[in-house]
């Protein structure tokens, strides 16, 4: 059974602007970790705040654990909802110690053993008497996380949980978060603008753009079968090859120009080939520029009617003006 169900939720801030959230529907199963992904202005944070009860949607329904939280006739205030929220900037109370912050939630103080356990798991034991400004950003985040979990919410909402962390920390925090979610059997819905975070953590993803859900699916589905060029581009630079040139492609999408179907082919899905006569998937063109990216080189290749971005091994030397022949292998 679904823990959380959203049915065509729409939220407008002003009557004239386009809606911040536009008819979004999706579900979230018990124990699942779901990412809401999109750029700035995609409505992902607004959607999270609607679920938390901090924004009131204009239309649509939110059902959590069989209880209707939002409907045309019903609004349950945030304090009555069975969900916790970890704010992007953590929103720790600066005048309360770590343990006071954690014990602040309704019912949190009733079970000191669980708090101790949670703090142990989050690796913040021993910080009980510190104030938020006395601990590091990573520790603050874990305090915020424990504070939210201590109220035993059915659903945990997280707003950009990894955006404040530097790249080295990110990886380990992702692993820690996942471990904590699994150990506490938490259903989590998190907002991110970073596709890598979403890929690494989520069981399922909801891709948002201009307030609307463009695609809902597992990370693999979304990577392999993006619903449109915009979703495809979330994963970085993507070449859109007319379907006619790659007729065997397993997946194609409507071109942004609105004319015909195109096949998304990522830069790493290309190889250099010796000659152009070994099949229809070979493309020949002139090198426009090369950029050294360390492990590989990014080459901009101008063929007869396409501009391709491809990756070639870092040890290969190519110069602008050279002619290259490449082929596409969509299975890698």
């Amino acid at each position: 059974m679904n823990l959380l169900t959203l049915r065509s939720v729409t939220k407008r801030y002003t009557a004239t602007d386009p809606p911040a959230v536009d008819g979004v529907s999706f579900e979230c199963a018990q124990g699942e970790i779901v990412a809401l992904i999109g750029g700035s202005g995609s409505g992902k944070t607004t959607l999270l705040r609607v679920i938390a009860g901090l924004e009131i949607p204009d239309t649509g329904e939110v059902v959590l654990n069989g209880t209707t939280l939002n409907s045309p006739t019903r609004f349950v205030p945030p304090e009555k909802r069975d969900c916790g929220l970890v704010f992007q900037d953590y929103a720790l109370f600066p005048n309360k110690t770590v343990s006071q912050n954690i014990a602040f939630g309704k019912g949190a103080a009733d079970d000191p053993a669980r708090i101790g356990e949670l703090m142990e798991m989050a690796d913040i034991s021993g910080l009980e008497q510190r104030y938020p400004h006395e601990i590091s950003g990573g520790q603050q985040q874990r305090v915020a996380l424990v504070r939210a979990l201590a109220t035993r919410p059915s659903l945990l909402l997280l707003d950009e949980p990894l955006s404040h962390l530097d790249p080295e920390l990110r990886d380990s925090v992702r692993t820690e978060l996942l471990k904590l979610f699994r150990e506490t059997d938490t259903t989590a819905l998190f907002v991110s603008h970073d596709i890598e975070d979403a890929m690494a953590m989520a069981d399922r993803m909801v891709v948002l753009r201009k307030g609307a859900a463009e695609q809902v699916g597992t990370p693999d589905e979304i990577y392999d079968r993006p619903a449109n060029p915009h979703v495809a581009r979330l994963f970085g630079k993507t070449n859109f090859i007319p379907l006619g040139l790659l007729p065997d492609a397993p997946h194609s999408i409507a071109a942004e120009t609105g004319e015909g179907q195109v096949v998304p082919a990522r830069p790493h899905q290309w190889q250099l080939v010796e000659n152009s006569n070994d099949g229809s998937t070979a493309f020949t063109g002139k090198v426009v520029s090369t950029t050294n990216r360390g492990a590989h080189q990014e080459v901009l290749l101008q063929t007869e009617n396409l501009t391709l971005t491809i990756h070639i091994p870092g040890n290969t030397t190519v110069k602008p003006g050279e002619t290259l022949t490449v082929s596409c292998d969509l299975k890698v």
Partner: peptide, 14 residues
């Protein structure tokens, strides 16, 4: 602002 009040609300406070 709203930040701390919202945090308190999501933690179950009226």
């Amino acid at each position: 602002g709203s930040r701390y009040a919202e945090a308190a609300q999501t933690l179950g406070h009226e």
